[in-house]
Every structure is written in structure tokens, then in C-alpha cells.
Design a protein around this nucleic acid. Sequence first.
RNA 1: UCCUAAGUAGCUCAGCUGGUUAGAGCAUCUGACUGUUAAUCAGAGGGUCCCUGGUUCGAGCCCAGGCUUGGGAGCCA
Length: 482
Amino acid sequence: MAKRTKIKDLLNSSDFGKQVSVMGWVRTFRNNQFIALNDGSTINNIQAVVDFNALDESLLKRITTGAAVSIQGEVVESLGKGQKIEIKVNKIEILGDSDAEKFPLQPKKHSLEFLREIAHLRFRTNTFNAVFKIRHALAFAVHKFFNDKGFVYMHTPIITASDAEGAGEMFRVSTFDPDHIPRNEDGSVNYKEDFFGKATNLTVSGQLEGELAAMAFGDIYTFGPTFRAENSNTTRHLAEFWMIEPEMAFYDLTDNMDLAEELLKYVIRYAIEHCADELEFLKNRLLEEDKQKPQAERSEFDLLTKLNFCLENDFERITYTEAISILRNSKPNQKKQFKYLIEGWGSDLQSEHERYLVEKHFKKPVILTDYPADIKSFYMRMNEPDAEGRTTVRAMDILFPGIGEIVGGSQREERLEKLEKRMTEMHIPAEEMSWYLDTRRFGSAPHAGFGLGFERLVLFVTGMTNIRDVIPFPRTPKNAEF
RNA sequence: UCCUAAGUAGCUCAGCUGGUUAGAGCAUCUGACUGUUAAUCAGAGGGUCCCUGGUUCGAGCCCAGGCUUGGGAGCCA
């Protein structure tokens, strides 16, 4: 087994006459002669040619779509037109049969909805081979980026006792028998008898713990799974997703934006440089899909042009107040085409507004900063009130075309009194958060950080449109298969 | 959670105004062919019409409820 040649290496070589051993899964078997073999090392197949006259008929019948085979043969120049190199088969062994009547993947296009139902087998398609190779490359690039900058990869807890992170509904973690939950005399649940002796949940963010580490290591990042029990049914939300959360001491909001923009450009460039075949395949797939759509819905640029455009241009940085002004004077607002018209300062932007700014007005990624304090989290640093007495916080959201919010971050409130005041106003129990407030009590320092939704990044780079297709086994409301 | 569209063969879909035995392409199987590239040609098999109930002489089609999926919104990353 150890001597097998990977198909990726074989296709890049031209060792005609060399005897090789390859193993993989049959994609198609045409004409009783031509096996298109894929071993996952590349999106491309190698063609293996068998002499059906020399082969036992019972063996021939076992060469079916999906079967795992081991082939030994000679590397030859292909006589056919579709490929330069192929293998003339000397010996073929079936490692694992695949019943052609039952194997659900056919050598033809399948809908993404159907493939989602067979997520355990969709890895064997070109599309998902490309998507998950790119996912891997992006994950690796994230680690490389931070490591090269001297950031420490910090593992924040997945099970948390804190329910004050304020990022959404949480999944309960408990070993209680649901039919016999211990209760106190007043009828409330007696968590003292639960596994951890208190109520615990799956984390919705590693940020608060990340801040603790940043106040010692300076620069840290987390990259791990995150859980939100929100009943969100969209193409951009998962109940279980992966998030990258850097946290940096001695960073202000501008430093924070600079880092986020540099990170995004770095990982996109990494994917372009390391996943050329996969991106080319996905680009062409999207072009094919676009042909089925009416002119108005087709994308302006192909996938690679879109990615390169993103690298070549600075993200547009504007404040919330400037954005409101642009939106208020925009055509769709004047002509009352927005579902939610922009009237005053203070309300949150709807996705139609974000899309207008990114896709119509600036036509590139946009960083929105300095949102009204009322619509943002307690830990964001308060600005001085403006001339009109309005208070904003040092928040920043990065909006991407087609994705919406891909990054959300802020400079953190490092001043203890201001933070405590804000927590009281927002009904956050300060007693339970004492460990967090200690960072402000002992050597507090300006710091900032952000959260990058990893699946949203993968969506953008692959050009896929549903987040369920960029994570191997998506968890969404009413769905936890496999 | 709300709005909206859909659910018919393994897949993608037709199915008329409610009317006999529910169709096509691809896939599969059988045979032919043998340098194919979504191979080709001939033939065959394959159905809980999402579920439950109702209306009707009669329901894939109409009605009610439910389930699931797609798209959009909200919440967010």
C-alpha cells in the first residue's frame, strides 16, 4: 500500500513507461475500457485503460461507479484527446465493491439539495472536493497568518458557565435525566446536582476568555466551534459554526480594522495561490449555473475576478452616521423601494441597506464603524457624545458582497467604571462576571478584537450560496443528521 | 419565528377542467459495439404521487391539519 502514487503527483509527471500503483474510487467506467479514477488528492481524475478481452468478465462487472480499486500498470501517453497521460492496466483489484443499483451518485449533475441529504457521500463529488479543499486551505492560512505574526493560538472553553456573553440563545449542557430533573423546594431546577454543579451551556463566543489571555500574551486568537440555539433559517446561519476571534492588547479600532482587512486578504490570496484547480472548477461551475439564470440575476464578475478585485482594493471605511446619510439620500430610499425606509439616526441597518452599500454604492467590501451605543454590546468602548449629543461605540462590522456581515468586532471598553455602568444599564450581572472585570481592575489596557465567521469566509471564497454546503455536516434547526 | 414556493421512479422534472392501466430524460439491468470523455444503439425493470383526515360516484389534482425542503425577512458570524 505504501508504494501507491497519488493521482495528483501522477498527473503532474510524465514518467512514460514507469510502472505505478494507484488506488482510488471509480467515477465512471466507459466502454468497458476507460476508468476515470479519483483518489481525492486532486479534483482531476486519472484515466486507467483496461483490456477487457484479457480480463475476467466477473471482475469487469465489479468495476462500477463508486467502487474502490487498486490498479497497477504502466504510465503511457494517452491516445485519446481529453488527457495527456493515462495508465495501461496490468492488474486491477477490487478493494471495495459498490452496488451500482444502490449507489446514489451518478456521473451527472446533482442538485445541492439532494447532495445535502447524502452528505456522507457528497465528499466524492468534484464540487465538494473543491469546497472542502479550499476550506482546509483557508483554515491553514488563518493559522499561518497569526503564527507568523506571533499570535498565540488560545483554546477557550466550549462548555461555559457564563450565560452573559450576550451573543444569542445557548444550548444547555447537562447530564440530567430529562424525565427526572432534580428540583429545589420552590420548584426551580437544582443545578447543584448537575454534572458541573451549576447551569452550563455550549459557548457562543470565546471572546471574553480571549480578552483574559490577550491581557497577558498581548496578541492571541481563537479558532474553534461555536454554538447558537437561534431558530435561524437562512443561507448564512448555522447552529454549529467555526469562528476565528483574535484579541489584541494595545490595539485601537483602526489597528483592529487594519488587522482584519490584512487577514482577509491574506487568506484569500493563499487560497488563490494554493487552490488554483479547485477555484477554476468552481468558477466554471458558477458560470454554468449563471447560464440558467435570467440576465439580471447573473453575477457581474466570475469568481476569480471577484476574489482578485477584493485583494486589489482597500475596503471602504465609513461610520454608521455617514452610512445613514448615504442611505437616506439613496435612490431606493427616495423612491421608497426599501422595505424599511431610512428615516432617522439610531436604528440598526437592515440587510437590504447593507447590500445597497456594498453591492450598489461602493461595489466593494465595506467596514462600518461607530454604531449607536444602544444597538451594540456592553463591552464595546464608548465614544464621547457628538455635537448632537448622540453616543456611539467603537464597533466595526465588515460587510462582504453576497455574504453580508463577515466580521464583527470592536475596541473594548477598558475603563472599569464605564464598563460597570454599562453593564448595569444592560442588566448584565456584574457579580458573575467578576473574573472578566478583573482585567480592568488589574493593569487594564486598551485592546480590541473581532470575530470572523469561518463558514461565511468559505462561502465567499468558494462562491457557494448556502452555508450548509461549506461545512461537512451542517447543524441547523430540525437537522442534525450524520 | 414570519412571508413565500415546492414535495410524483434512484436523480431532474411533466402530468390538461377532478375521470380508464401515472409519463419523459438521465441512472440501473440485459444485449450489441469497442479509444471512450455526460460514449452510442436496441430492449427491459422500476411508483406509499410527503403524511393524516375530509369532500366526491371517482382525488396525483380540491379542502383542513401536520412534516420536510428551497428562497426571502428577522437575529447574527
